[in-house]
């Protein structure tokens, strides 16, 4: 018995999961299919024949390409900001005990539990008061506010497995704090930092709700896609969709494969 109950029950459960997966993938299939339809408006019901012409059309789309460039710049900024802040937050939390630690922890994770639009709005208002107009800079900071929380949680989890005797040993051997940090702590944290960087990058790249409220007249790839739904929807957006789906499948497969392999090694 593996917790599954009778054979019939297990079959029903499997069927249910299969239906759930169909529900997850069918709409994506519809969306992807329209990218190959030779019809000027995204559609699967008006079939104009198979075409690949929307793919080169994407390369002609100046705004989408510039949006992509903006997205990459912002994501790089978010990684550069949220990793140090998240690490510093985790190290500070580790030094604290009791009530102060609980309170600071709650403040540091609160951005994760705050609706994204509110992070965007508060950043927008704050920086306008300081005379900084909305743009890529404010969008970067708004995203960093909650992405740093994710980084902090990941570093904190890793730090809990850190052997404190290593620190004592390093200091007993006369290492300076910076040497200890550079030669022992950072190498120990490096795998986590790499994962955190990837996650921070993807979170930033995919973000819509926070960005659309804090970016002002500027735009990213995702906010540009968002603005197309009201005006000028064309199969080019479906091409972007297909590319996103492909990239995600590759990334996710790699991710699952790597983590399974790591688990097998352990």
């Amino acid at each position: 018995m593996n917790g599954g109950g009778s054979r019939a029950a297990r079959f029903l459960l499997d069927l249910y999961v299969a239906l759930f997966l169909a529900y997850m993938f069918a709409p994506l299939l519809v969306m992807s299919l329209a990218a190959f339809n030779d019809y000027p408006y995204p559609s699967v019901t008006q079939w104009g024949g198979f075409t690949l012409r929307w793919f080169p059309a994407l390369l002609q789309d100046e705004r989408l390409l510039r949006g992509l460039a903006h997205s990459l710049v912002i994501a790089a900024g978010v990684v550069a900001i949220s990793l140090p802040l998240g690490l510093a937050g985790a190290l500070v939390l580790q030094q604290l005990r009791g009530r102060a630690a609980g309170f600071l922890y709650a403040v540091m994770v609160s951005p994760i539990l705050t609706p994204g639009i509110i992070l965007g709005i508060s950043t927008l208002i704050f920086w306008r008061e300081l005379g900084v107009p909305a743009g890529k800079f404010t969008a970067t900071l708004a995203q960093s506010s909650f992405i740093a929380s994710y980084a902090m949680l990941m570093f904190l989890a890793r730090l809990q497995r850190f052997d404190p005797t290593l620190e004592e040993a390093a200091y007993d051997l006369g290492a300076s704090a910076f040497l200890f940090f550079r030669r022992i702590l950072l190498p120990f944290l490096a795998p986590t930092a790499a994962t955190a960087a990837v996650i921070a990058f993807l979170q930033s790249f995919e973000n819509y709700n926070t960005t659309v409220f804090s970016i002002g007249g500027d735009w990213t790839l995702v906010t540009e896609i968002g603005s197309r739904f009201r005006f000028g929807l064309s199969p080019v957006i479906n091409v972007v969709g297909v590319l996103f789906v492909l990239a995600t499948v590759v990334f996710a497969s790699l991710w699952v494969w790597l983590s399974e392999r790591r688990r097998a090694v352990r």
Partner: peptide, 26 residues
């Protein structure tokens, strides 16, 4: 389990706007 997880991670990781867009087409 790994395959099922993969099947769940893929739609999870695809951009929110595009997933909603799929329903707009429906």
């Amino acid at each position: 389990r790994a395959l099922l997880l993969l099947a769940l991670v893929i739609p999870y990781a695809i951009n929110e706007l595009l997933r909603v867009y799929a329903w707009l087409m429906i």
